[in-house]
Design a protein around this nucleic acid. Structure first.
Length: 775
DNA sequence: GAAGCCCACATTTTT
DNA sequence: TGTGGGCTTC
C-alpha cells in the first residue's frame, strides 16, 4: 500500500520477503515464479514492474499479460501506486486478448482483415456454428453446436488451421469415432464465414497473432525488439497459442518473467496446458526458477490440509507451502441427509457465526462445483433473511436488449458483420422476416459477398422480393448509413443515444411497464451510463475523439466479472469454485463434496481429469483465510431424481489430522435439524407455503412477477375479459393503456382492436391477451 | 407477431 | 426439478 510515487529500489525491495526479492531482482533471462496460493503473486508482479521502471527501463518496452480484465485493472492500479500513473499508463498491460487484438488491428492489412473487425463472443460463435450445421443439413443432435464449437476452439488453441485439421489423420479418426466426421468441414466454413464478415472469435485473436508472426517476420521483428521485458500472470492457464506468442516475442531479449501455480491449473477444458508451466525449463533451458512458498492468507491448518490433498497428484512441481499464521481451527466436515439440509446447515452456521463471532456477511463464501447447486443455497439463505450475492449468471453484456443494441454498434462499425446483421435486421420489428433474410443470405452466398452488400443493389443481385419489402430494406440500409455518417462527428455516447432513438428501441422499451420491460429499460440506461463514463474518462485522459469503435473494442472483451463492484461487505458470496480463483474469504464453505459431483462424474475416468478436479478442490480450500467447512449430502435431487450419494474421495485425500472428526459434526447437524432427511422434506414443503408471506430481503423475483396491473385496477369490481366492449379502457400487460375501438367475433374467438397510447393500434385475441379492464 | 406447449437437457467457462 | 429452445397455434 505505497502511496508515494517515488520509490527507490531499496525501498521497493525492503517490502518483499527474501524469495519475492530474489524473483524481482533477477533480470538477466527467463524466469519462472512458482507462486503457491496466497504467497503474494500479484505483489511480486507489480513490484517487478516497478523495479524495472526504477532501473530506467522505459515503460513502453514492458509487456505484462493477464487473463482477466480484472487482474489487468488491479495490476495497473497497483503499479500506478508504486511508480505514478503517468509511467504506469505507458506500460503495455492488459489481457492476452486485448493486447493482441490491438496489435491485430494495427496489422490487420497484413492478414487480410480490416482494422475495424468485429470480435465474436461465445454466443455469436455458437450461433454461427449452428447456422452452418443447418446449412449443411446436418442433424444438430449429432453435431451439437456447443461441442462442435469446442472442438474448433481446441483446434485453434493448438494452432491447427482448417487445412491442417482436414489433413490430420489422427484428428479425423477421432471425429469419425465420435460420429462427427464432418467437423473439419464445419470448421472450414466457420472460418470462412468469420473472415467474410471481417470478424474474429476469441480464439482467432491468438491464432491470427501467430499467423501474423509466422507470415510477416518483419512485423514479429518489430514487436520482439520492442518488448524488452515480458511478464505473464497465471502462466499455468496458458494454452499453446499463448505459449508460442510469448516464446516468439521473447526470442531477442530472452527476458520473460512468468508467474503461476501449477497446483491451481483448472482450465484445461478451455485449452490451458499445464505442461507449459511444468516444462517451462524445456522451452527456456536457461530459465531460473523461484518458489514463493510462504502463504500469507490462511491459517496453518488450512494450508497443511490443502498440501496434504495436493500431494496426491502426480504431475506437479514440488513445493513446500507453509503458513506462519496461527494454527487455526481444523477443517470441519459436515454431512447432511439431503441437499436441502446441507443448505439449511450452512445458512444456520453463517447466521450463528455472525451473531456469536460478529462476522459480517461479506466474509462468507459458499463455493460449489456446479451452478445448479446454487438454488438450494439461495432458498436456505433467503429463508433466514441472509443477504447474498450470486456470481456467474447471465452477464450484463449477454442480455438480449444489450446484445441488440451492441448489434447496431457492430454493424455501424463493420457492416460486413453477419451475426450483427441478422440480429438487428428485424429488430425492432420492421417487417423483414425470416423468408427475406434467407433470400438475402442465399443471394450473398451466390455472389460470394456479404449480406450488407446485397442491400446496396438488391435487384442487381437477384433478390426476389416484393416492392414493399424492397422499400423496407432500403430504409434499413439508409438508417445504418446515416449512423455510419454520424459516427464521423459524434462521440460514442452521443451516437448511442441517436441509435436507440432513431431505431425506436427507446420508445419500444421505455413504454413497456411490465417488470421485465422496466428491467430492460434500466439495463439500456445502464449501458448508456457506462458509455458516458467511458467517453468522459477517456477525455479526461486527453483523448478527444472517442468513437463507437473504441467503446466496442473495449466492450467486446469485457465480461460480467469486471462490471460488478466485487467485494460487497454485507452479502454472502455464492459462486462456483472456478470463479473463486484469485479471491479470498475469511470463512469458506465448500458444498457438495460427493462422488460424481466433486469430482464431477465425467472427470473420474481419466487421471488427468481427476487431478484437475483435485486441483480445483485445492483452489477451493485455499480461498479460506480463517475457517473452511466441507459439506456433503447423503442424498440429493439430481436431474429431477432423488439419488443417494457417496461422499467424495477427496475428503479422504486430506490428512485427517487437519479435519474435525465427522461424527461430531453430524451430531451438531442433527441438533439443529431434529428429524433428518424425511423431516427436511416436510420442512421444505412447509417452507414453500410459509415463504409466500414472509418478506424476503433480496432477489424476490416471485413478488416482482405480480403484474402491477393487479394493483392499479383495484377498487371497482373488474369486468371479465370476454365482457369487453368498445370504448372500454384497458391496461395491457405489455402495451400499457389503450382504448378498445372495435370488437370482432370469429367463431368462438373474440378479438379486440385497441388503440394503445404507446404502441398504437394492436389486435388482441381475447382468450390469449393479458390485460385488465380499467374502465 | 406473440404466446403457450412440449421436449430435451442439465460441468467448469478467465476472453 | 427447472429451464430454454423450437414448434405450433391463432
Amino acid at each position: 500500500m505505497q502511496s508515494s510515487d517515488k520509490n527507490t529500489l531499496t525501498e521497493l525491495l525492503a517490502q518483499l520477503n527474501a524469495a519475492q526479492r530474489d524473483a524481482v531482482e533477477f533480470c538477466d533471462g527467463p524466469s519462472l515464479v512458482i507462486a503457491g496460493a496466497g504467497s503474494g503473486k500479484t505483489r511480486v508482479l507489480t513490484y517487478k514492474i516497478a523495479y524495472l521502471l526504477e532501473q530506467g527501463l522505459p515503460p513502453y518496452y514492458i509487456l505484462a499479460l493477464t487473463f482477466t480484465n480484472k487482474a489487468a485493472k488491479e495490476m495497473k492500479s497497483r503499479v500506478s501506486d508504486l511508480v505514478g500513473e503517468k509511467k504506469a499508463r505507458q506500460v503495455w498491460m492488459g489481457t492476452f486478448h486485448s493486447i493482441f487484438s490491438r496489435i491485430l488491428r494495427n496489422e490487420a492489412a497484413n492478414i487480410g482483415f480490416d482494422s475495424n473487425f468485429t470480435i465474436f463472443d461465445a454466443s455469436d460463435s455458437h450461433n454461427l456454428v449452428r447456422l452452418i450445421i443447418k446449412d449443411m443439413n446436418l442433424d444438430d443432435k449429432v453435431y451439437r453446436p456447443g461441442s462442435v464449437h469446442h472442438r474448433i476452439s481446441m483446434a485453434k488453441n493448438s494452432l491447427i488451421t482448417p487445412a491442417m485439421y482436414e489433413q490430420n489423420a489422427e484428428i479425423r479418426e477421432y471425429d469419425r469415432q465420435i460420429k462427427q466426421p464432418l467437423i473439419f468441414e464445419i470448421y472450414r466454413r466457420y472460418q470462412e464465414r468469420l473472415r467474410a464478415g471481417n470478424s474474429m472469435d476469441f480464439d482467432d485473436l491468438l491464432l491470427y497473432t501467430n499467423i501474423l508472426f509466422r507470415d510477416h517476420p518483419d512485423v514479429l521483428e518489430n514487436y520482439r525488439n520492442r518488448f524488452q521485458y515480458i511478464l505473464v500472470d497465471e502462466y499455468q492457464d496458458t494454452n499453446f497459442a499463448q505459449h508460442l506468442i510469448v516464446k516468439q516475442l521473447a526470442e531477442v531479449h530472452h527476458r520473460v518473467f512468468v508467474v503461476g501455480d501449477d497446483a491451481q491449473s483448472i482450465y484445461s477444458f478451455r485449452g490451458a496446458n499445464i505442461d507449459n508451466i511444468l516444462k517451462f525449463k524445456t522451452s527456456y533451458p536457461e530459465a531460473q526458477i523461484f518458489k514463493l512458498e510462504q502463504n500469507y492468507r490462511s491459517t496453518q491448518n488450512i494450508v497443511n490440509a490443502a498440501n496434504s490433498l495436493i500431494k496426491k497428484n502426480v504431475g506437479q512441481i514440488f513445493k513446500n507451502v507453509f503458513s506462519k499464521q496461527e494454527e487455526g481451527e481444523k477443517i470441519e466436515v459436515i454431512s447432511a441427509f439431503s441437499d436441502f439440509e446441507e443448505g439449511v446447515i450452512i445458512a444456520n452456521k453463517i447466521a450463528r457465526m455472525r451473531l456469536e463471532d460478529h462476522v459480517s456477511y461479506g466474509n462468507f463464501a459458499i463455493l460449489y462445483r456446479t451452478n445448479a447447486q446454487s438454488r438450494i443455497f439461495e432458498e436456505a439463505l433467503r429463508k433466514k433473511n441472509i443477504p447474498y450475492r450470486i456470481y456467474g449468471g447471465l452477464s450484463f453484456y449477454q442480455r438480449k436488449e444489450i446484445k441488440d443494441i451492441i448489434g447496431y454498434f457492430r454493424l455501424i462499425i463493420n457492416p460486413q458483420d453477419e451475426e450483427a446483421f441478422r440480429r438487428i435486421i428485424n429488430y425492432p420489428a420492421r417487417g423483414i422476416g425470416d423468408v427475406t433474410v434467407n433470400k438475402i443470405s442465399d443471394a450473398a452466398q451466390m455472389h460470394n459477398i456479404g449480406m450488407w452488400e446485397v442491400l446496396s443493389d438488391p435487384v442487381g443481385y437477384g433478390l426476389h422480393v416484393n416492392f414493399g419489402t424492397l422499400k423496407k430494406l432500403s430504409d434499413f440500409r439508409a438508417l445504418i448509413r446515416d449512423f455510419i455518417d454520424q459516427n464521423e462527428k459524434l462521440n460514442a455516447f452521443e451516437l448511442a443515444q441517436e441509435v436507440i432513438k432513431k431505431t425506436g428501441i427507446v420508445g419500444e422499451t421505455y413504454r413497456d411497464m411490465t417488470p421485465e420491460g422496466m428491467s430492460r429499460a434500466e439495463n439500456i440506461q445502464e449501458l448508456l451510463n457506462a458509455m458516458n463514463i467511458f467517453v468522459a474518462q477517456r477525455q479526461e485522459e486527453g483523448d478527444d475523439d472517442i468513437r463507437l469503435q473504441d467503446f466496442l473494442q473495449e466492450v467486446s472483451l469485457l465480461t460480467d466479472q469486471d462490471t460488478d463492484g466485487n467485494s460487497d461487505s454485507e452479502r454472502v458470496t455464492l459462486m462456483t469454485v472456478h470463479s473463486a480463483k484469485g479471491l479470498e474469504f475469511d470463512h469458506v464453505f465448500v458444498a457438495g463434496m460427493e462422488e460424481d459431483l466433486f469430482p464431477v462424474a465425467m472427470a473420474k475416468n481419466e487421471m488427468r481429469g481427476l487431478e484437475e478436479e483435485r486441483r480445483l478442490f485445492y483452489v477451493a480450500i485455499t480461498r479460506a483465510k480463517k475457517t473452511c467447512t466441507l459439506t456433503y449430502a447423503k442424498s440429493r435431487f439430481r436431474n429431477g431424481r432423488l439419488t443417494s450419494t457417496q461422499k467424495s474421495r477427496f475428503l479422504s485425500d486430506i490428512d485427517h489430522n487437519f479435519l474435525t472428526s465427522e461424527s461430531e459434526a453430524i451430531f451438531v447437524a442433527h441438533a439443529e435439524h431434529e428429524d433428518g432427511f424425511w423431516g427436511s422434506l416436510r420442512h421444505k414443503r412447509e417452507e414453500e407455503t410459509a415463504n409466500a408471506g414472509s418478506q424476503a430481503p433480496l432477489y424476490n423475483f416471485q413478488k416482482e412477477k405480480l403484474s402491477p396491473i393487479a394493483q392499479t385496477s383495484s377498487g371497482a369490481l373488474p369486468k371479465e375479459a370476454d365482457e369487453l366492449c368498445e370504448g372500454d379502457i384497458i391496461e395491457h400487460e405489455r402495451f400499457g393503456r389503450g382504448v378498445v375501438s372495435e370488437i370482432e367475433s370469429t367463431g368462438s374467438d373474440k378479438r379486440a382492436f385497441v388503440d394503445f397510447d404507446s404502441v398504437g393500434r394492436k389486435q388482441l385475441l381475447l382468450k390469449f391477451a393479458k390485460f385488465k379492464i380499467v374502465k
